[in-house]
Design a protein around this nucleic acid. Structure first.
Length: 195
DNA sequence: GTTGCGATTGGCT
DNA sequence: GCCAATCGCAACC
């Protein structure tokens, strides 16, 4: 959890056959392993989530809604399943390639606005599951931020459980941060809780 | 073996 | 603002 705000402003460079794109992270969301009902790791290790239980600094990629990929930076000690969902970013290098990958997006701020948009623009897919984010020779690298950022925090997006914990972090005022939409299921959970 | 639904997006009303 | 698209996981029967 503590890592999620620290990732804001960090640079994510992905190298693919068609070129390299560098993103600056503007929105992240923490998922805290087996204590977190909203985490994929909540019910223990499985073939799908095993990367989350491995050492920190690797990439956990999952496929959702039959069409989208989302990416997490694994954090926390080996054996504990901590992850930070990369929700949004701004393109800082090779906007031309980023636009080529997302031809229907007009505004630069929309290229990596949302977790699945981010993976599309970065060229991240299933093959990148488990990639080492820290190794210098890795095709996906995460580098520390070079400038301070103003951080805001709030409830997580799109999760049906534990949506009330303020584990979503973003760069305050940044246009690439998606507008907050509360999960309809989260509302159901809240209503249930009050009845 | 079957079923329900998801850490979503983009297009249409 | 609402809804379809589309498939893998995991909870059930």
């Amino acid at each position: 959890m503590e890592v999620a705000p620290d990732l804001l402003g960090c640079l994510l460079t992905t190298v693919a056959p068609d070129g390299a794109v560098t993103l600056r992270l503007t929105e992240t969301e923490a998922y805290c392993g087996m204590d977190d009902p909203a985490s994929h790791a909540y019910r223990g290790p499985s073939p799908r989530n095993q990367v989350m239980f491995g050492p920190a600094g690797h990439l956990y990629v999952y496929f959702t809604y039959g069409m989208h990929y989302c990416a997490n930076a694994v954090c926390g000690p080996d054996g504990e399943a901590g992850g930070v969902l990369l929700r949004a970013a701004e393109v800082v290098d090779n906007e031309e390639l980023a636009r080529a990958r997302r031809p229907k997006i007009r505004r630069a701020s929309g290229l990596a606005r949302g977790p699945a948009c981010l993976t599309m623009t970065a060229g991240i897919g299933r093959d990148d599951l488990g990639a080492d984010l820290c190794a210098p020779e890795s095709h996906i690298r995460l580098r520390p931020r070079q400038h301070d950022v103003t951080i805001a925090a709030g409830p997580r997006v799109g999760v049906s459980r534990a949506a009330d914990v303020p584990w979503r972090f973003w760069v305050d005022g940044n246009p690439t941060v998606s507008a907050y939409k509360r999960s309809p299921r989260a509302d159901l959970e809240v209503e249930r809780g009050h009845i």
